[in-house]
Simulated scan of single mutants.
Amino acid sequence: MNKSFRPALRLSAVSLLLAAGAAQAHQIWIEQAAGANERAVVRFGEFGENLREASPGLLDKFGQVRFDLPWKGQYVAEVAHTDKTAGERQGPKGAEKYDGVSYVTSLTVLKADGVEPIAAGPAATPNK
């Protein structure tokens, strides 16, 4: 990640979560910033066909989540959604039934500046 990373990360976690269930045939992906003064962008559409939702659109209807990143180092955000709607898909041997679908995405950010992280405490003695 470049040095111009802002101390706060805005990630539309709610959008990712809710749109995953509503999207069905669409994908959600994060594109890196093109320039030093730009931000990463959450996209919704057909990645393989290079189709992106226009703004304003479905993703704009959801709120944003803000994370302050005060410490230097690595941060990981994960969003998970389980759709418990049963269905059927075509497999190599014909139709295959399923009970639900799980979607998981994560974002890793390495922050080069900030407060030094707090040192880990001593290891606990294992129980015998």
Rank of each mutant, 00 (worst) to 15 (best):
G45I: 04
V115H: 03
K111L: 10
T85L: 09
F67N: 02
G63I: 04
L107W: 03
G21Y: 12
D68V: 00
I28C: 07
T108F: 02
G57I: 05
A77I: 15
Q24F: 15
Q74C: 09
A19G: 01
G45M: 03
I30A: 13
H81G: 01
L110T: 15
A80V: 10
A77Q: 06
L17Y: 15
G94Y: 04
H26K: 15
K72F: 00
T85C: 06
N37H: 13
E53R: 05
E49V: 03
K128R: 11
V115S: 08
E31H: 03
G45H: 01
G91L: 06
L59T: 06
F67S: 03
A40L: 08
A112T: 13
A13Q: 11
L16Y: 06
D60G: 07
L18A: 11
P126Q: 05
A77T: 12
R43Y: 00
G87S: 01
R6E: 13
T108G: 06
L69F: 03
I118Q: 10
G45Q: 04
A25N: 12
Q27D: 15
A13D: 09
A120N: 12
N2Y: 08
L69N: 06
A86N: 02
G91Y: 02
V104P: 00
D60L: 03
A112K: 15
V14L: 10
Q74G: 11
E38K: 11
A23E: 02
I118M: 07
V41S: 03
G91K: 04
D83R: 01
G45T: 05
S55C: 05
G35R: 11
E31G: 07
S4E: 07
Y75Q: 08
G21M: 06
A34I: 14
G48L: 08
A20Q: 02
